[in-house]
C-alpha cells in the first residue's frame, strides 16, 4: 500500500525561528494518524503545510499525489483532495448551515443548486444536525459549529481530512460530540490526520501516533507507544497530559 501522505525531512522557518527541523513520516490510505506534542513543537505548522497554508522550505512532501514543494502546484486540485477543520471553526457567519456547506460544491465543483443541497443535507445529517439546516452559525453551540465545519469539508468529498486541534476550544461535553463524529469517519475508512491533545481519543482511534518535539518527530509508531513509550520524553509528556 502506497502512502497517501509522505513527509521527508520537511523544514520550515518563520524569520529566524526554525519551526520544522526535518520532519519525516508517512500515513497510508484509510489510516488515522494523531500528531501529539507540546505547544510550539511544530505539529500545527506541519499540518498547515500539508494543505499549503504554509509553504515548506526544505525536504519534500507528497499529499494525495501532489508535490507540495513544487512552485507550480495545482492548488485547486490539492484542496479538492484535502479537507481541513480548524480550532476556531471558521464558519461563514452570514450564511446558514446549509449555505455554508453548499458554497464550495457550488463554486468550486460547479454543481447545481439542487445537487449541492442534496449533498449538504446528507453530510449535515451525518454529523447529526439535520434539524439545524436553516440556522445561522451564531445560533449554534461550539460543538455544533465544529460539526458543521466537518460537514462543510466532507461535502467536497476529500480523500484526506486534517484536523487542527478541533476540540481545544470546547468544553468536555461538546468535545465528546465532535469526537464521536470523527470516530465515525474513521470507522468509515476516511484517512485522517489530527493534531490533538485528546490522548484518550488518540489511544482509541489512531492507527499511528506521531510525537513531535522541538520541530522533529521524536517518536512514532502504533497507538501502543502511548501505553509503552520507548523514549523518556514521550513517557513524561503522556504522564503530564494525563494529569490534566
Amino acid at each position: 500500500m502506497s502512502p497517501i501522505v509522505e513527509l521527508k525531512d520537511v523544514r520550515k522557518s518563520f524569520g529566524n525561528l526554525e519551526i520544522l527541523k526535518g520532519v519525516s513520516f508517512e500515513v497510508n490510505r484509510g489510516e488515522v494518524a494523531a500528531i501529539i506534542g507540546q505547544s510550539g513543537s511544530g505539529k500545527s505548522t506541519a499540518l498547515r503545510c500539508m494543505d499549503r497554508l504554509e509553504t515548506i522550505q526544505g525536504g519534500s512532501m507528497v499529499i494525495c499525489g501532489h508535490r507540495l514543494e513544487d512552485a507550480k502546484i495545482d492548488l485547486k486540485a490539492l484542496r479538492r483532495d484535502v479537507g481541513i477543520v480548524f480550532q476556531s471553526y471558521n464558519l461563514f457567519p452570514h450564511l446558514t448551515v446549509a449555505e455554508n456547506v453548499m458554497l464550495a460544491p457550488r463554486l468550486v465543483k460547479a454543481v447545481s443548486r439542487a445537487e449541492a443541497r442534496t449533498v449538504a443535507e446528507a453530510v449535515i445529517a451525518k454529523v447529526g444536525l439535520h434539524e439545524k439546516l436553516e440556522a445561522y452559525p451564531e445560533q449554534l453551540s461550539g460543538g455544533q459549529q465544529q460539526r458543521v465545519a466537518i460537514a462543510r469539508s466532507l461535502a467536497m468529498e476529500p480523500k484526506l481530512m486534517l484536523f487542527d486541534e478541533v476540540t481545544s476550544a470546547l468544553d468536555p461535553q461538546l468535545t465528546g460530540e465532535v469526537l464521536k463524529v470523527m470516530e465515525q469517519l474513521a470507522t468509515e475508512g476516511m484517512t485522517m490526520i489530527l493534531v490533538t491533545h485528546e490522548m484518550g481519543f488518540a489511544r482509541k482511534v489512531a492507527d499511528r501516533v506521531i510525537y513531535m518535539r522541538d520541530g522533529k518527530v521524536h517518536e512514532a509508531g502504533s497507538s501502543d507507544i502511548l501505553r509503552t513509550p520507548s523514549t523518556p520524553e514521550l513517557a513524561e509528556f503522556i504522564s503530564e497530559a494525563s494529569e490534566h
Binding site: 497554508l53 485547486k76 471558521n90 458554497l103 464550495a104 465545519a149
Partner: peptide, 12 residues
C-alpha cells in the same frame, strides 16, 4: 480565518 477556510475549500 474566514479567508483560510475559503482558501482551503478551493475558492478562487
Amino acid at each position: 480565518g474566514q479567508l483560510e477556510a475559503a482558501e482551503c475549500l478551493g475558492l478562487s
